[in-house]
């Protein structure tokens, strides 16, 4: 596919993805390029600020504003893979564009390092770019290997949806975008109990008990409807369900064996890419059975 007009973004990786979720980055880059979205590397960026919001909102705003100011210098919009990053960049962008007093205050801090927030760009999450720039219909047209043999469940996570005042591109109570994107691959997207429930990741380290209980609930609900995979779009949700799945199984004496795929891995399969290209080997819970089913179904 030729590059889409006006679909050129600075890719913002944040911290969690380069730290330990490379399969998400690899598969996202592959499918975006294939679908005609042009990605430009940021010459410099830093933490989006979100992890430090609990201790200092001011620090969060300054860190987010730095990234926005750095992107403004390139005159390009930002595309993030992590909903947490999208949330903090979008929120700070909106607040600082609207509130002159706060903007002056934050710019006072940025001035110390020669930066200025002007409010000239936007930040979007992968999901939003796929929906708004590429379009669900174009994705369907690009599918060469429909995954009609698969029945999967999706998990949006919180920060892609809430708070709706700042994010507002889907209905947080009954979100449709990811479902539509999953179905665009030909797979069936199953409904299950408590689809929009938090993965618990932010509570890890404060109370592992609460965090893992929440993740366990999700895996149980997904298993209940016999989903062949759980599809995520957030590095933290993925860590909760994939990296921690074995730990949860041991802790609660359960067996799940549910592979957790990053959405672009699922999409990539439908676009004709190989599991190797899409870094399936990086997944903790093996997707071998699912890949066999895909291969057999395609015969």
């Amino acid at each position: 596919m030729n590059p889409l007009p006006n679909s050129k973004y600075l890719i913002f990786l944040g911290c969690a993805i380069p730290y330990r979720v490379s399969a998400y980055e690899i598969s996202s880059r592959k499918v975006l390029v294939k679908l005609g979205v042009e990605l430009i590397e940021m010459p410099e960026f830093n933490c989006c600020g979100l992890p430090l919001d609990p201790v200092s909102h001011e620090t969060m705003m300054i860190l987010a504003a730095r990234n926005l100011a750095l992107a403004e210098q390139q005159s390009l919009n930002i595309l993030t893979l992590c909903p947490g990053c999208a949330g903090s960049l979008k929120k700070v962008n909106k607040i600082l564009k609207e509130d002159k007093t706060l903007r002056e205050q934050i710019n006072g801090h940025l001035k110390e390092s020669g930066l200025e927030f002007k409010g000239t760009i936007e930040a979007k999450h992968l999901l939003q770019v796929l929906k708004e720039d590429v379009g669900i219909d174009n994705i369907k047209k690009a599918v060469v290997k429909p995954l009609t043999m698969l029945k999967v469940a999706e998990h949006n996570g919180c920060h892609i949806l809430r708070p709706k005042e700042y994010i507002g591109f889907d209905d947080p109570e009954d979100p449709q975008t990811l479902k539509a994107l999953v179905e665009a691959t030909g797979a069936t997207c199953l409904d299950y109990i408590d689809e929009t429930e938090c993965c618990g990741a932010p509570s890890v380290g404060v109370s592992d008990k609460v965090a893992l209980q929440l993740a366990k609930d999700k895996l149980s609900h997904v298993k209940q409807v016999d989903a062949q995979a759980l599809i995520t779009i957030c590095p933290f949700c993925h860590i909760m369900y994939d990296t921690n799945e074995l730990r949860i199984e041991k802790m609660f004496n359960e067996v799940y064996g549910i592979p957790v795929l990053h959405y672009p891995q699922l999409l990539g399969l439908a676009l004709g890419m190989t599991p190797e290209e899409l870094a399936f080997s990086e997944l903790r819970v093996s997707a071998k059975k699912l890949l066999e089913q895909v291969n057999e179904g395609a015969k």
Binding site: E44, N46, L52, V55, S56, E58, T59, I62, L63, R66, G108, H109, L110, E112, S113, G114, L115
Partner: peptide, 15 residues
């Protein structure tokens, strides 16, 4: 990353 620049931006923050 650009720690020097970040430190300058955060210098005035109470935390």
């Amino acid at each position: 990353g650009n720690p020097e620049s970040i430190k300058k931006s955060l210098k005035g923050v109470n935390f």
